[in-house]
Amino acid sequence: MSQELIDYNIGYLDEQTKRMIRRALLKAVAIPGFQVPFASREVPMPRGWGTGGVQVTAAIIGEDDVLKVIDQGADDTTNAVSIRGFFARVAHVGTTTRTDEATIIQTRHRIPETPLSEGQVIVYQVPQPEPLRLLEPRETETRRLHALEEYGLMYVKLYEDIARFGHVAKTYDYPVLVGERYLMAPSPIPSFDNPKMDGNPALQLFGAGREKRIYAVPPFTRVESLGFEDFPFEPQRFDDPCALCGSTGVYLDEVIIDDAGASMFVCSDTDHCERTVAENEEVFA
């Protein structure tokens, strides 16, 4: 009775679907930052849980790949564990939690602290691929705005933030200009991570399953976070080090530690935190 009832194709998707996604990926790489429509398929998870990222990963992954999946930086959350298990089973790939050992990293809303290297691929799960959507709801219009490279709306939004709050209030999904041409939503990564996209040696692929769009940033491509001469882009900063590993210059999550509301700030990147803790122990052992 242990025999499986269904023998899935390697990578879960059928070959015709993979070809369709692969053709879209090639166009996405050729036109950095441009959103290429694709026929998003059903995968065994609900829309909004990373179906775009899963489809992109399924279209590129092979048996000699090593997959890492993170959710808000963590390797050990439900979504990350499930997606890793899914590909281990349907694509027969090795998995890892170490950023430096992975060939493909699928991510929800973070870029790992460990710098990516050439040859790696990072696949972002994207809920809303259109950076102008909240400013212009009509797809016909946003397409035209991209065609005309008319991004005044976004600058007005940033200007209004500055006029009201004295600074740009957007701290995640902070808009970027890719290759000095296309305005792009970096998926809701914190603006802390935005500088890592610029000139990154890894191939960055973005999949939006519900919205049916794929886009990409090739390696060594200029990714400029929008700003003004007198109010340049400023990524988030953290004054205190991680309470567990002591790292500075990393993105921290607030964790509530008792019923009185006390909290501590720890690395969002669990792989980075664990390895730094291990290194510290070696030093002090």
């Binding site: 194709n9 070959e15 993979k18 790489v29 590129i60 992954i61 092979g62």
Partner: peptide, 19 residues
């Protein structure tokens, strides 16, 4: 081996276009 051979060839094309 259509599935594996196509995956390998695609990654080569994707890598080539990215580099």
């Amino acid at each position: 081996d259509p599935t594996r051979d196509a995956q390998r060839a695609f990654r080569a094309v994707l890598d080539a276009l990215s580099h």
